[in-house]
Design a protein around this nucleic acid. Structure first.
Length: 203
DNA sequence: CGATGGATGAACT
DNA sequence: GTTCATCCATCGT
């Protein structure tokens, strides 16, 4: 598996909704001891610093959300119930914004991901933020690590029919985020997904 | 120090 | 559509 060129640090310094939009069509790869795993990012959500009560950092810096205040292009992994969720940290240091990776189209190490998930159907492997972490072998131990270099990184896909940078706006759906309380910015249109993808977490 | 609740997933009816 | 497993950071007392 050749190392594709990871998206650079500056990519993550764009406005966070733009990063969320821009990650669609890109490839997320985790090179683990058992082999590489990953897939095309098909669903994301932006969490903002200001005017966004749903953001984990909305009430300041804590031990849990510390990674969100760290450098852009790093991972923020947190636990919800009994599962883990992966975010790409955006914005300069001390500005706590991030993009939640909600779903992948599985493409790399599919059988390894199937074993980790205990599920066979491709459409169920990575169709949720907790499923992504389980399939990719990510845990709280990966909180804060870089997304700019192996073993964990996002990159443009060098497959002609899937050049990430060229995902047309017409294929992208922008809507409200999943699982947000009514009084916590539920109405903000900060979720993005590929409208034609069978691999998203929910319609 | 005890209570609370959640950016979920799986298994139900 | 609904329920709930199961954990720990956070917050209130």
């Amino acid at each position: 598996m050749p190392h594709l060129s990871p998206l650079p640090r500056d990519f993550y310094l764009q406005p966070t909704p733009q990063v969320a939009r821009g990650l669609l069509g890109s490839l997320l790869v985790h090179e683990t001891a058992e082999g590489p795993v990953g897939g095309i990012i098909v669903e994301t959500e932006a969490y903002l610093c200001a005017e966004d009560p749903a953001c984990h950092a909305a009430r300041g810096r804590t031990k849990r959300n510390e990674a969100m205040f760290g450098p852009p292009g790093h991972a923020y992994v947190y636990r919800i119930h009994q599962v883990f969720c992966l975010n790409a940290v955006t914005a300069p240091e001390d500005v706590a914004e991030a993009v939640l990776l909600r779903a992948l189209e599985p493409t790399i190490g599919v059988d390894l991901m199937r074993r980790r998930r205990g599920v066979h159907a491709l459409k169920d492997l990575c169709s949720g933020p907790g499923k992504i972490c389980k399939a990719l072998g990510l845990t709280l131990a990966d909180n804060g690590i870089s997304l700019l270099e192996p073993p964990l990184y996002a990159c443009r896909v060098p497959v002609p029919e899937r050049v990430g940078a060229s995902v047309p706006d017409a294929h992208i759906v922008q809507t409200t985020r999943v699982g947000i309380h009514p009084d916590k910015g539920a109405e903000l249109p900060l979720r993005f997904y590929l409208g034609t993808s069978p691999f998203i977490s929910r319609r």
